[in-house]
Amino acid sequence: MDFQLLVDIFPQVFLDGIILGFMYALIALGYTMVYGVLEFINFAHSEIFIVGAFVGVELLLGLKSVGLLDGLPWPLVLVLALVAGMAASGLLAVTVERVAYRPLRHAPRLIPLISAIGISFFLQDLIRLFESLWRNAFNLVYPTIDVLNVRFELTQTLDVSVKSLVVIAAALLMLWALHVIVNRTKIGTAIRAVAEDQAAASLMGINVNRIISLTFLIGGAMGGAAGVLFGVQYGLINPYTGFIPGLKAFTAAVLGGIGNIPGAMVGGLVLGLLEAFAASYLSLLTGGAFGAEYKDIFAFSMLIVILIFRPKGLLGEIVRERA
């Protein structure tokens, strides 16, 4: 085993892990906010996330076809794509809640979960249907913006591309904004009140339904932003791409303590790092016997272990189980 190699790749793997971690963190917010308020796993969040990526790619391809992709300054293009993705995903999340979850709010716990699984599958094929009719293709590639692919060589073994920096900056900015909204504004107070006790919140004059819609809007928008960033960073998307990152992000949310917003970030980063290291080191350490393919098993096994031994997660408080 080449010890020097292990040391050399360390910084690059670490950076990749951080980027992946922020991606997971942004997606995890959608799961964790909804769980915090409704104690319900929004299984369709992975598709809400990938819809953001599709709206982003459609916008970029549209700009490209009218020749504006290189004409407009790239930060503006990126902001446009992010805003479009966030709006689409946020509205989709609100619609899904209104149509498929709200009628089931007082049903036994498994019923809305099954409905959410149904929505998840339905949306996957709906995206496929739409893109097949619209573009006659549903595996789409993000158009490249040259500036974003510039790489800086920091050291001999570590280089970082502009798009990675953009991903990290955007993720940090959004996490900070969410933190402010939830903790410093009146709306945030209302969200926390509804999460605490719906009946009491409604007695205090809070419109519970509206706050729940708002929670879905914010969580969905974060997912949509993550979708656009995912597309920019990794390039290739199809309607089924969202599922595994969604599941991992849920793992991240549970890892950090579900219902807990800083927890989602911590969980995302921990999971991203663990996965990046598993992907690059597992094969090296076992002499090729176990390859990077096992990183998925790694993530899921971790989910199982956490749920069994520390269900409240790293930062979480104990979430009351509803019957």
Partner: peptide, 20 residues
């Protein structure tokens, strides 16, 4: 009609609609 549009491939949609 686009060649990619094949009704046979939409079993997820069927499952999803049934569940919801």
């Amino acid at each position: 009609l686009p060649t990619q549009f094949e009704p046979a491939k939409y079993e997820r949609m069927i499952f999803g609609i049934i569940l919801v």
